[in-house]
Nucleic acid binder design. Structure first.
Lengths: 215, 215
DNA sequence: AGCTTGTTGAGGGTTAGCCCTCATGTGCGG
DNA sequence: CCGCACATGAGGGCTAACCCTCAACAAGCT
């Protein structure tokens, strides 16, 4: 069974390649970023692609985006997404966008090589595989609302940059939006995070704190 | 050359083991936590131990602590510490506590397997190896330890309240000081935390982030 | 077609929080 | 006594970030 690996962390990617080879897979390619991954898949579609969610250049969702593109051009390629951290947003997106042949595992929680190889095969065969802790989180998350779930994708991007201590001007430049648009998003974030104006509050800092608590 | 690996992330550890075996090392043991690591080293001291800094149970500094213990009981065992993130505190501790036969590399920045194997050998041979980015950071950091140590007691109080998302007005009320005094302290905090005015920076948020990182 | 949501952004107005200079008083150490 | 650090705070000036209303377009759903 042919597999392609995508992860910018060389040590991890090369190590995983060797593990999969030992388990009987044929690693037909390795990519360090999303563009290389798409190239490799177009050239020679594997049974399954094992993809790190965060890859260059932005280290945000390039892995998932590439996975979506792969699903579009090659619907039969299984997609196993690996992540360093629990992220229910990514998991939710995966579960809703992909109906079959998809997996989402945490790098640090793969405790058994044979099990891992089995998961890769299952995904290649069209099954869905998801880390059990994520299942629990998703179920548990239904009740307890993460305030950040109320934010749109764009708003979350804006807030992530705010949380890096970026100014509105920097956000405007980095997201290629006008200052007015940034202000509109910031205001919406405050509203959705239930941060009304208060004499004693520094709402931007409070929004950043909410973001950090959620990550 | 004999090597022991310690990392609770099975996928990473097993993959790294295979890479080292291919490079000619003999992996005489693998540990998932610090206690197992110490057991293995005591039983059969290797030439070098490759250790993840963060391991169970606390995922804080168990790797370094175990390394210190190994250096105590087997001073000739090389110690290569691996970390997921740049952390100059850990690096500083390593450089001060261990004079030779020590290395500190970032998992995500190992870009070349042969180079990695070479680093492992160098550490086993008593050399010191450190990620170049960390060198740069350390050089820049020589002067400052924890940035917050430069702050006066009063400034730390002010910053703590800022980090709760409080406004200057609230600080003024809660600390029974004038608005002008609050401003003076905030300005001093920015200066001491080396946060000069920058078009792209939101300095208050950056100061809060520095506080949170330090806590 | 109508409605809703999300994205983008303009116009106009306000102010909290920043910036600078200057100053006083206290405590400590040489 | 002098110098320094810390704490406090005044006067004055500036602007990034906030606030509001309004609007256009696209996509998805009924």
């Amino acid at each position: 069974m042919r597999v392609i690996l995508a992860d910018d962390a060389v040590l991890f990617r090369e190590g995983t390649a060797r593990i999969l080879i030992e388990a009987g897979f044929r690693v037909t390619g390795q990519a360090g970023n999303a563009a290389e991954l798409l190239d490799l898949v177009r050239r020679d579609p594997p049974a399954v692609a094992v993809i790190d969610i965060r890859m260059p250049p932005g280290h945000a969702t390039e892995g998932i985006d590439a996975a979506a593109e792969i699903r579009r051009i090659h619907p039969d390629v299984g997609l196993l997404l690996l992540s360093q951290h629990v992220d229910t947003h990514h998991a939710m997106r995966l579960m809703t966008e992909f109906e079959r042949g998809v997996g989402y595992l945490l790098k640090d929680r793969v405790s058994d090589l044979a099990g891992f190889a089995g998961d890769v095969r299952r995904v290649a065969n069209g099954d869905c595989v998801i880390d059990p802790e994520l299942v629990a989180r998703l179920v548990g998350r239904k009740r307890e609302r993460d305030p950040l779930t109320a934010l749109t994708e764009r708003e979350r991007s804006v807030l992530a940059l705010m949380a890096q201590g970026r100014s509105n001007s920097a956000l405007s430049t980095e997201l290629h939006l006008s200052a007015k648009t940034i202000e509109a998003h910031v205001r919406s974030i405050f509203t959705k995070l239930d941060l009304p104006p208060g004499v004693g509050d520094h709402r931007r800092v409070l929004a950043v704190l909410a973001f950090l608590r959620s990550s």
